[in-house]
């Protein structure tokens, strides 16, 4: 759906490129995670792809056409979620949504989304009186109000309580299930693991690794099993290679003769992979 080749970008007042040549492809129907340390250029990349920043170098194609060749109707297809508040503070949530909705040819059922995200009873409140998390939820609805085919989300659950974060994640998964494509930026590795089909790690303006979350864990993990068991009222711990586990006599003895307390395979967590890949050193 989106293909990015050798993308480079420098902010007008900066001396150095923020994006130093990145390539990736977002396939239709997938959730693509863009990860990396703070300040690396994730939001910048999102802004370039959504044409909020001009004068990039390299090539960005959306459905086989350069994004620079599209007119304003490019935005009929895409939904953009912002990190910052983007609503008229003196208008109510509903007035804001109604206004923005009318700018598009396709309009989603925002009442239903307001209900789902627990904002329906606040819909007649001015957005300026909303709490931070309420604004974040409203931004998410803003991104979806034109039934987009492609969704750009920049830390959509940032600052949300677990319950609302859960709802947003479910809505993202449903969006994908209905054929939508997503570019997702987040610092929450649990969200990545749960949602993303592909992840790209950025470091120093470049992409240093692109893979599926599962492959990354296999690649970076140690394929071991850590077992905690009690042996004569004493807690003991042992590690076993996952390969040939069924023939590992010591392992078989342990599970036969002891009470097992915990048992965990030791694929690396995405958190650790993140630090390892982007950490430099």
């Amino acid at each position: 759906m989106f293909s990015i080749k050798n993308l480079q970008y420098r902010y007008p007042n900066n001396e150095e490129d923020t994006i130093k040549g990145i390539d990736f492809e977002i396939k239709t129907g997938e959730i693509f995670g863009l990860l990396g340390p703070s300040g690396v250029g994730k939001s910048t990349t999102q802004k370039i792809l959504t044409r909020q920043l001009d004068n990039f170098r390299g090539e960005i194609r959306y459905q086989d056409k350069s994004i620079t060749e599209y007119d304003k109707n490019f935005y009929q297809d895409i939904g953009v979620g912002f990190e910052m508040p983007v609503h008229f503070s003196k208008l109510t949530a509903e007035e804001n949504l109604d206004f923005f909705k009318k700018l598009y040819s396709s309009r989603a059922d925002t009442d239903q989304m307001l209900k789902r995200l627990g904002l329906y009873s606040d819909k007649d409140k001015k957005v300026g009186e909303f709490s931070k998390g309420m604004k974040v939820r409203l931004n998410f609805i803003r991104a979806l109000l034109n039934n987009p085919r492609m969704l750009f989300l920049d830390e959509p659950t940032n600052g949300l309580d677990p319950k609302n974060a859960r709802i947003i994640k479910n809505m993202i998964a449903e969006f994908k299930a209905e054929g939508g494509t997503v570019l997702l930026t987040t610092h929450l590795m649990n969200d990545v693991e749960e949602l993303c089909d592909q992840v790209a790690f950025m470091a120093d303006g470049k992409i240093v690794e692109i893979n599926t979350p599962k492959n990354l864990k296999l690649e970076y993990g140690s394929r071991q099993l850590k077992v905690e068991y009690s042996d004569n009222a004493e807690v003991k711990e042992a590690n076993f290679k996952l390969d040939d586990l069924g023939e590992n006599q010591k392992f078989l003895q342990v599970i036969k003769n002891n009470r097992i307390l915990t048992m965990h395979s030791q694929e690396m967590t995405l958190d650790n992979i993140f630090i390892k890949i982007t950490g430099g050193s």
């Binding site: 959504t50 044409r51 909020q52 007119d71 304003k72 109707n73 490019f74 935005y75 009929q76 895409i78 953009v80 912002f82 910052m84 508040p85 983007v86 609503h87 008229f88 503070s89 923005f100 700018l103 598009y104 040819s105 803003r142 034109n146």
Partner: peptide, 14 residues
Amino acid sequence: QEGVLKSLFVAPIN
């Protein structure tokens, strides 16, 4: 300042 210009210009308007 309210960020609405950003929001407006990711909508199909010129």
